[in-house]
């Protein structure tokens, strides 16, 4: 008998549900990375105001503002897909999971666009 490798299984067709799951996992990992970074930055407060100010100056550069636009998108996706999973698990959402996905992602997209506009217009 032959056991195929797990990589082989990746050739399976991705439906909406599996895309949502993959992106949920990836955005979750990205958020863990961000929170670690965030705690590290806040932690510099314990090393005195000068150290904190230098780091904050560095983080106020336009590059990080654009990264914040990405972060805002990742947070929104993770949050709204999380809402979808709650609806599926507790409120019979599995009957319309694709519609719920598109509806929530549309709301998330509007919030992302508005938030991003505010962030970008505030770049010094």
């Amino acid at each position: 008998m032959y056991k195929r490798t797990k990589i082989y299984d990746l050739s399976y067709h991705n439906f909406i549900g599996s895309w949502a799951w993959i992106l949920h996992r990836l955005s979750g990992l990205a958020l863990i990375f961000y929170i670690t970074l965030h705690i590290w930055v806040i932690n510099t407060l314990t090393q005195g105001p000068e150290k904190f100010d230098t780091i904050m100056n560095f983080l106020n550069s336009p590059l990080f503002k654009y990264l914040e636009v990405g972060l805002w998108g990742i947070i929104l996706f993770h949050a709204f897909n999380g809402v979808r999973i709650i609806i599926v698990d507790f409120f019979k959402g599995s009957f319309a999971q694709k519609k719920i996905f598109f509806l929530l992602i549309a709301i998330a997209f509007i919030m992302w666009a508005t938030g991003s506009y505010i962030i970008i217009t505030h770049i010094n």
């Binding site: 909406i16 549900g17 599996s18 698990d89 507790f90 599995s94 009957f95």
Partner: peptide, 26 residues
């Protein structure tokens, strides 16, 4: 079960498997 819905797409009898698994979780 991470509600990926592949089972529901694959089921030839169109059983809403994920719904029943959600009920089981509850």
């Amino acid at each position: 079960c991470h509600t990926i819905f592949n089972c529901m797409e694959a089921c030839p009898k169109n059983i809403n498997i994920t719904e029943f698994l959600s009920k089981l979780k509850v």
